[in-house]
Design a binder for these strands. Structure first.
Length: 436
RNA sequence: GCGGCUGUGGCGAAGUGGUUACCGCACCGGAUUGUGGCUCCGGCAUUCGAGGGUUCAAAUCCCUUCAGUCGCCCCA
């Protein structure tokens, strides 16, 4: 038997979760005036090397690279931002008069990692980006937007962690201060951190291995090295968050693994007993130089990304139940001539917006009734030789248990009348129709 | 990349060398010749993740491999 590739999965029973999440995404994104964008699942390898960072874990050991028949070097996208930025530049979206340019995306990302709880090789992210504003209110709006997605899904107990790395100047002086501080303690750090000391010293801060070591505990904090302007940006962000009643926690160890972040970085975390070390369901931040680094015009930007698998684990723990599809009518068919009539009637009902299904396997009547129950059908329509002869069908209300004989040509009208009579007691589909 | 645990029908789950692989749920058929949910009866894996080996005999022992899961690293 051919099996799915390691770290991938088929969405079968959980499809309802994805549909509900996508629905919430569309609804909330509209409120923030954010449009969808869809970009390719693979890009040139160079794009990710230049954006995510040559020394990031993602690029050094996690990308799916392949050479195509034309000799081009492709990479399956490991994250969403790089492709969006490329599309922004290539399509000159920055020239759109409606600025900032705000776009969201939902789709698969790929990283070659050992799968575990909340982590897959093909996984799905929902993310959003805003291009063209360097104002802290834009950072705040993005955080509020992300939190509102969770509110729409009724997810509780989410903590917002924020920190600031500052702009280029702040980052540089901080990096020097950090290196100066760490130098005498270098030999106490883990092997990997000793390499990071040269390649990416910031990341030493959130190393789990060295977390409790003296050198890390006493390390300087990014916030203490911000320029006056950068510090003001962070303070303003906090006041906007407070204005929107977004609770946050300043987290000095939050530096994040992608090289392109500047100023604000943030994560939305659920408690560790749900997802262990994978408890960040959303991560994001500002990246003011990335567009320029990728040969676009200087454009400040801020964005975030959700891991949908992790979000679903959290939703399940919160008792979230996607709506299960319900069926208006199930046809129970006895005999070939009845089947012809039934097909005709179902076509008529469906044309008028009534959902129906029937048995297509010539099962016993008993089995067909069982099936109607499995399908959660509100009504059962019974049609056999007698009914065909009389031009009627038997209509049974499965909730009330009442069965009546209805002329075939009156079936649609009768069903419509009964389905819309008491919608609050009735089917979910009708309720939804009423809402929109 | 490293470590722990696991892999028996659609699902859950017994079985640790001996004959046709317990059982439960689900499913199908019948009792009830056209009315679900309850009850009763019957059916439903030549095969135990895959491949190889040991043995008179393997789901059970050995080797290899694949996959799942949890953790480390890191990340969404």
């Amino acid at each position: 038997m051919i099996q799915k590739m390691k770290g991938t999965y088929d969405i079968t029973r959980d499809i309802g979760f994805y549909l509900e999440i996508e629905k919430a995404i569309r609804k909330v994104s509209r409120l923030y005036n954010v449009e969808e964008i869809r970009t390719p699942h693979f890009e040139s390898r160079e794009l990710f090397h230049r954006s995510v960072g040559e020394n990031s874990d993602i690029v050094t050991k996690e990308t799916y690279d392949f050479e195509d028949r034309g000799g081009r070097v492709n990479t399956l996208r490991p994250e969403g931002t790089a492709g969006i930025v490329r599309a922004l530049i290539e399509n000159k979206l920055y020239a759109d008069p409606r600025t900032p340019i705000k776009r969201y995306y939902v789709g698969s990302m790929f990283r070659y990692e050992r799968p575990q709880k909340g982590r897959f090789r093909e996984f799905r992210q929902f993310g959003a980006e805003s291009f063209g504003s360097k104002h802290p209110s834009q950072d705040a709006e993005m955080i509020d937007y992300a939190m509102n997605i969770l509110r729409a899904l009724k997810l509780k107990n989410v903590r917002v962690h924020i920190n600031s790395l500052g702009g280029e100047a702040s980052k540089k002086t901080y990096k020097e201060a950090l290196k100066a501080h760490l130098e005498p303690h270098l030999d106490t750090l883990c092997q990997e951190c000793q390499t990071r000391y040269e390649t990416n010293p910031l990341r030493i801060l959130d190393c789990k291995k060295d977390k409790d070591k003296e050198a890390i505990k006493t390390a300087p904090r990014t916030l203490d090295y911000l320029t006056k302007e950068d510090a003001a940006h962070f303070e303003a962000l906090k006041s906007y968050l407070e204005a929107m009643k977004v609770d946050y926690k300043v987290d000095h160890s939050l530096v994040r693994g992608l090289d392109y972040y500047t100023h604000t970085v943030f994560e939305l975390q659920v408690s560790e007993d749900l997802l262990g070390q994978q408890n960040a369901i959303c991560g994001g931040g500002r990246y003011d130089t990335l567009v320029e680094d990728l040969d676009g015009p200087p454009t400040p930007a801020v964005g975030f990304a959700f891991g949908l698998e992790r979000l679903i684990v959290a939703l399940k723990e919160n008792g979230f139940e996607p709506l299960s599809p319900s069926l208006h009518t199930y046809f129970i068919i006895m005999g070939d001539t009845a089947r012809v009539k039934a097909m005709s009637l179902m076509h008529r009902l469906r044309t008028g917006g009534i959902t129906c299904d029937a048995d297509f396997t010539e099962r016993s009547m008993k089995a067909q009734f069982k099936q109607s129950a499995h399908q959660n059908a509100r009504f059962v329509v019974i049609i056999g030789e007698d009914e065909v002869a009389n031009g009627t069908v038997n209509l049974k209300d499965q909730r009330e248990g009442i069965e009546t004989s209805v002329p075939m040509n009156a079936l649609y009208g009768t069903l419509m009348e009964r389905l819309t009579r008491n919608t609050n007691a009735g089917c979910k589909d009708c309720k939804e129709k009423g809402e929109s």
